[in-house]
Amino acid sequence: MSDTQAASPKPPQIKNESRVYFAALGKRVTRLRMSQGMTQAELARALGVSQQAVFAYEIGERRISILVAGRLARLFSLTMDQFLGFAPEPTKKGRLSPRAMRHAERLQALSKTQQRFVVRILDVLEKHNKSRGKAGSAPQARN
């Protein structure tokens, strides 16, 4: 073995417990993102990273840097301890997700007649779901 081979550093090995931790953290990112009604692309824009990076974070393939973790914690209104899983997350107070807020704004932009029509459609769908014993689930789209 030559001196140059001995001097070249080996790539750092990720311990199995680290892999497990980052996979769990990635699942938490996915859950938080979806609870906010965000797509991976929207989260990527908010973080200043690529959508591929968000995907890699979510499946635990890429470690989340402390800078990105801080951005994620702020974005989801969590402390770092809460985001990293060292403290319980606060309970929700019934706030709407950004996606639901956008839908509410779109609804408000409609005329009163159109708003009543949309609400009637929602009422019919809700009644239909309850009668089928699937309250809260959306009907399947047909092509």
Rank of each mutant, 00 (worst) to 15 (best):
D3C: 00
A6R: 15
P9V: 11
K10P: 01
K10V: 07
P11E: 09
P12E: 13
Q13A: 15
Q13N: 11
I14F: 06
K15P: 02
N16R: 14
S18N: 10
S18C: 02
A24R: 08
G26N: 10
K27D: 09
R28G: 00
R28D: 05
T30E: 04
L32W: 03
Q40I: 02
A41D: 06
L43V: 09
R45S: 08
R45C: 03
L47N: 06
G48H: 10
Q52R: 14
A53P: 02
E58L: 06
E58Q: 06
G60C: 07
G60M: 05
E61G: 06
R62T: 03
R62Q: 13
R62H: 12
R63M: 00
I64T: 05
I66Q: 14
L67D: 11
V68S: 07
V68A: 14
V68C: 11
R71M: 14
L72T: 00
L72Q: 07
A73F: 01
A73Q: 02
A73R: 03
R74I: 02
L75V: 01
F76G: 01
F76P: 07
F76N: 01
M80A: 12
D81W: 03
F83R: 04
G85N: 04
P90H: 06
K92H: 08
K93E: 13
R95P: 00
R95K: 09
R95W: 05
S97P: 01
P98I: 01
R99D: 07
M101K: 15
R102K: 13
H103T: 00
H103K: 10
E105N: 10
L107T: 01
Q108K: 15
Q108N: 15
Q108E: 10
L110I: 04
S111P: 07
K112W: 08
R116M: 08
F117N: 08
F117V: 06
V118I: 14
V118D: 02
V118G: 06
I121F: 08
L122M: 09
V124G: 05
V124N: 07
K127D: 07
K127Q: 12
H128T: 14
N129C: 12
K130Q: 13
S131D: 15
S131F: 10
K134W: 03
A135I: 00
S137C: 04
S137D: 02
P139M: 09
Q140R: 14
Q140W: 09
